[in-house]
C-alpha cells in the first residue's frame, strides 16, 4: 500500500513516464477498490437494517389489534392483549423517570457549574461514563441484591429502581454537556447583577439550556423503555392486572422475551406486536429529542 517513490506534482509530462503511470494506476486501483468496498458495506448495512425493520413492521402490524390495549396477557392458546404489560411498563418507566432525571440533572449541574474545575469532577465524569456503558444485566443483579432480597419478593418498585439507575448516567452526561453550552458571559452578566449562584443556575443556565435538558431526559426515557435485562429479576412478570407496585409486575420487555421464547404461535405474535410498540415508542422519543435539539440550534443560528 505504501508509496515508495515520492510522487511529483502531476504535470502531463511527468505522469507520462511509464513507471509513474503504472504507479499512479496502482494507487488509483487500490483507492477505487477501497471506496467500492465502502459502498458495498454501506449497502449491506442499510439492507440488513431494512430487513430487520421490514420483518418487525410486517409481523408487528399484522398482530396489532385493539385487543392489545384492552385485554390482559393470555394463557397459551387463548385470546388476549398486552394491557397489563403496557400499564406496568408505563408505571415503571414513569417512576424511574421521576427518580432518575432530577438526580441526574443535579449531578450534571454540579459537574457543569459548581464543580466544573474540581478534581473530584473528573472522577465523577469517569465513573459516570463507566456506568453509562455498564452491562444493564449487572444493574439488574445489583438491584436484585439491594431491593429484592431484603424485601423477599420481586416487585414493580425494584424494576423502577433498576431503570432509574440506568437512566441516571444518561441524564448526567447530557445535562452536563448541555449546561456547558450555555455561554459563560450570560452567567457573568447575571452574577454582576448580584444574583446568587443558585438563581443564576435556575434562571439563566437551566432556562437557556432548557431544550437541551429536555432532549437528555427524552433520550434517557427512550433508553430505559426498551431495557429488558435488568427487569428479568427485579419486577419479574405478572400474568394478571396489577397496579400494586409492591408486587411482581408485568412489563412489555419481559413479556416479549417470555412470549417470543415460547412454542405457542399466538404468544409469539403478541411478542411481535409488543416489539413493534416498544420500537415505535423508542423511535418516537428519539425523534422528539432530535427535533427539540434541532429547533434549539436553529434558534441560535
Amino acid at each position: 500500500m505504501s508509496v515508495q517513490t515520492p510522487v511529483k506534482p502531476t504535470t502531463e509530462r511527468q505522469v507520462s513516464s511509464p513507471y509513474q503511470r503504472r504507479m499512479y494506476l496502482r494507487r488509483r486501483i487500490i483507492s477505487t477498490f477501497h471506496m467500492a468496498m465502502s459502498h458495498v458495506v454501506t449497502f449491506l448495512g442499510v439492507a440488513v437494517l431494512a430487513w430487520i425493520l421490514w420483518s418487525l413492521f410486517g409481523q408487528g402490524f399484522s398482530a396489532l389489534s385493539i385487543k392489545l390495549f384492552t385485554e390482559m396477557t393470555p394463557p397459551p392458546g387463548s385470546d388476549g392483549g398486552l394491557l397489563n404489560a403496557i400499564f406496568g411498563s408505563l408505571m415503571m418507566v414513569g417512576i424511574a423517570t421521576v427518580l432518575g432525571i432530577p438526580i441526574g440533572l443535579l449531578v450534571g449541574t454540579y459537574l457543569a457549574e459548581y464543580g466544573r474545575y474540581a478534581k473530584i469532577s473528573a472522577v465523577v465524569r469517569f465513573i459516570n461514563d463507566i456506568l453509562l456503558s455498564a452491562p444493564s444485566i449487572l444493574i439488574g443483579l445489583f438491584v436484585y441484591e439491594l431491593v429484592v432480597v431484603p424485601m423477599g419478593h420481586f416487585s414493580g418498585y425494584a424494576g423502577a429502581i433498576a431503570l432509574a439507575v440506568i437512566a441516571l448516567p444518561v441524564v448526567v452526561r447530557t445535562s452536563e454537556d448541555m449546561l456547558l453550552l450555555v455561554p459563560d458571559t450570560l452567567r457573568e452578566a447575571a452574577a454582576a447583577l448580584g444574583i446568587p449562584r443558585w438563581r443564576v443556575i435556575l434562571q439563566v443556565s437551566y432556562r437557556s439550556a432548557g431544550p437541551g435538558l429536555m432532549t437528555g431526559a427524552l433520550l434517557a426515557v427512550a433508553r430505559i423503555s426498551g431495557e429488558t435485562a435488568p427487569l428479568l429479576f427485579t419486577s419479574l412478570n405478572n400474568q394478571f392486572w396489577s397496579t400494586n407496585m409492591n408486587q411482581p409486575m408485568a412489563n412489555l420487555p419481559v413479556v416479549i422475551f417470555n412470549f417470543a421464547m415460547s412454542p405457542y404461535d399466538d404468544w409469539r405474535s403478541l411478542a411481535w406486536a409488543g416489539a413493534l410498540l416498544i420500537t415505535l415508542a423508542v423511535l418516537g422519543l428519539t425523534i422528539a429529542a432530535r427535533t427539540l435539539l434541532a429547533a434549539k440550534s436553529r434558534m441560535k443560528g
Binding site: G226, I256, F257, I278, T279
Partner: peptide
C-alpha cells in the same frame, strides 16, 4: 437512520 437504529432496544435484534 443509523442513529435511530442505534436507539432500537437490543431485544428487537434478539427476536429478529
Amino acid at each position: 437512520a443509523i442513529e435511530m437504529l442505534a436507539a432500537i432496544p437490543s431485544i428487537i435484534y434478539g427476536m429478529w
